[in-house]
Design a protein around this nucleic acid. Structure first.
Lengths: 223, 223
DNA sequence: CGTTGCATTGAAATCCCTCAAGCGAGGTGG
DNA sequence: CCACCTCGCTTGAGGGATTTCAATGCAACG
């Protein structure tokens, strides 16, 4: 199941990668990090766990989610390789984070990060920039959820994905329709219908459900 | 119209308040600040203006908004006395900010803030905490916009307002139904109808449209 | 080759929006 | 001081986008 690869202690890794791992933020903060792997749908941490570690995706993808008492779910973000998550102001996490596919992450103790930023102004700056970037993304998400139609939401999602993982005009989605729906504030059926609609209008092609080719990107941008 | 009260230069103020103003963040960052006043609905800065100043509300209230090309509007936040706004990671603002009522703000040059945080670790920390607080609020807003019903949104809004400006179980709203609607991702009519519905169920009382008494707060909390 | 999980499609229902009218408080001018 | 206007808010009727419920399709897997 979960596999720990403790690089911090210097003990030899179980896996073939002998090089010690580092978690890098910006270009001025680099900390020795442990490595862990998670299976598809495995929880990395829970919504109210003590916020003890800060993570970076190495391989795979994760979703951050919040639940309402009745089970309604909102996906706050998807994190892809290089992305940092789990850096909190308070003492506990505010999201549940799960692996979308088999995922490898690096993690450092939050206290190590705190120490680093208290010593290095530039590191502190880098972390603030990181938080601001998250903030700006959420601001976009608020506009999307508050005022955009299903069609606009799905189109924006596809454009976001292709921008984050450029793949020659195509997207390989790691996440399910359910994840997309809960990210966009829609239902799985609406996401599916909207995608077929975009296919009918030749804005995209759907060779398979998780592989999407963006044929007409300006049509998507116009919503 | 707009009245500037430049305290920075030491010139005597036009208004009756002779004391120099300071912009305070947390309890370790305090900068000499200029004072400005804005009329109701007057713009404080625009969405793409260079982000030259950081503001703090002294009196009144402001809204931060973003517009879609076709005029759809999303209110990102309401800022009340003490709140800081306009602190950006990039070079330009990302929101239009307008006074909701006649409003007094203090402002400091962004560069002054940058200097302060580069000298004082604790100030840098305070600013990161501030950004994180904004982030957490937006995360709540994303859940609200993505997954909550109109009734839940309006109830959450009322609870947020009473929590931010405790007034013995009552709220005096500075903003219009339009502002509320654009904050909650609804229409003005839905906000109005939802409020009357809450009034019918005795959760609130509406002595006047801007003055709301919260009669049954647990009913609101349950949505 | 059946099972299982995810995705698509259809039909009906619902919640919220749109359009339109009415209401009430506040301000202005006669 | 009252008529009138304006602006914001409320209310109603109808419509539409999205959800809900239900069935089918499809690919992976044992």
């Amino acid at each position: 199941m979960t596999q720990i690869n403790a690089v911090l202690g210097g003990t030899s890794a179980a896996k073939a990668s002998p090089m010690p791992a580092f978690l890098k933020i910006g270009d001025c903060l680099e900390l020795p990090a442990a490595t862990m792997t998670f299976d598809r749908n495995e929880e990395i941490y829970g919504e109210t766990d003590p916020a003890e570690f800060v993570y970076q995706v190495v391989r795979g993808a994760v979703r951050t989610t919040r639940y309402l008492e009745d089970g309604r779910r909102q996906v706050g973000a998807f994190h892809l390789p290089q992305d940092i998550f789990g850096f909190e102001a308070g003492d506990t996490y505010r999201f549940t984070v799960e692996a979308i596919v088999d995922t490898e992450v690096r993690l450092v103790k939050r206290s190590a990060l705190e120490t680093a930023i208290s010593k290095d102004m530039r590191a502190a700056r880098a972390l603030w920039t990181l938080t601001s970037a998250h903030l700006e993304k959420l601001q976009d998400q608020v506009l999307l959820l508050g005022r955009k139609s299903a069609l606009e939401r799905v189109a924006a999602f596809l454009l976001e994905m292709v921008q984050r993982k450029p793949n020659g005009g195509a997207v390989d989605l790691p996440m399910s329709r359910n994840d997309i729906a809960d990210y966009l504030g829609l239902t799985i059926e609406t996401v599916s219908r909207t995608l077929t609609q975009l296919e009918r209008t030749k804005a995209i092609a759907l060779p398979s459900s998780r592989h999407i080719v963006l044929c007409n990107r300006s049509a998507l941008a116009m919503a």
